[in-house]
Amino acid sequence: MPEGPGQITADGRADTTEGRRRRRAKRGDGGRLREELLEAAAALLDDAGEDAVTIRAVAQAVGVSTPSVYLHFDNRLELLHTVCLGVWDELGRRMRRSGAETVDPFAELHQRSVAYIRFGLDHPLRYRLVATGPATAATQQVADACFRFLRDTVQRCVDVGVLHGDVTALTRAICACLHGAVSLLILQPTSNWPADIAQYADDVATLASQGAAALPRGHLGR
């Protein structure tokens, strides 16, 4: 039977397929239901993979009707991306930590580039779902956050004369290198990945930062 809206109770919950009626929710219970749905989707994703996360499966795991899920998420993709956002918050923490380790903006650019690559390879499924699949509001949110962290560092590099050119254009080029390095691996079996992931991340970060520094004046928007 296809997934889709149907009849629901006043609190957004409904009889299960066995006809067992749930209690009426108190005011504010909607937020708790949303968290339950996200927890169930995350468990399905981690245990059985992307294909296991369907609106119906998540609803059954929580004990609600499929229309109850649609009250909180417009579609399956939005649900999946929202689950992934919790992990992407970790990238911001890594970026902030790496930026705090040095006062040299060029060294900071390298460290943040390493942090980006290592994050993507530590969370390949969630990275792929948000960064390489169909775009949603979550995709834009993640892209904006990642771009902002790197752009701030590129701006400081330009300010001290290590990099030359338009800050936004330079950041886009560096982001393309980092995203490409992650995507190249996560689309392959892990058995094909380099044996030393730390060295791989360091090498790519070096190529991205040193390559940007090697661009002559007049390139990339200036």
Rank of each mutant, 00 (worst) to 15 (best):
A143T: 14
A48C: 01
R20H: 01
R151I: 12
P124V: 00
A48K: 06
L185V: 04
R22P: 14
V64Y: 02
D104N: 13
H219N: 10
H164V: 13
L129M: 02
A214V: 06
T54R: 02
F119A: 04
Q60E: 07
D47K: 14
Q140P: 00
A138I: 08
H110G: 02
A212I: 06
A205S: 14
A40I: 02
R97S: 06
R97I: 10
L185A: 10
L33I: 15
H179K: 09
G4N: 10
R151L: 14
E35L: 14
C84K: 03
R222E: 11
R217V: 08
R112N: 01
A135G: 08
E78P: 03
G63D: 04
D203W: 09
R126N: 09
C175M: 15
G12T: 14
G165A: 08
V160L: 02
Q141E: 11
L85W: 08
H110Q: 02
D159V: 10
A201T: 05
R13D: 07
A10I: 11
D47L: 12
D159T: 15
S113V: 00
V58Q: 00
A135R: 06
K26V: 08
D196V: 08
L125P: 06
D202S: 08
S191L: 05
A143D: 13
D89G: 15
R148I: 13
G6V: 07
G165M: 08
R56Q: 12
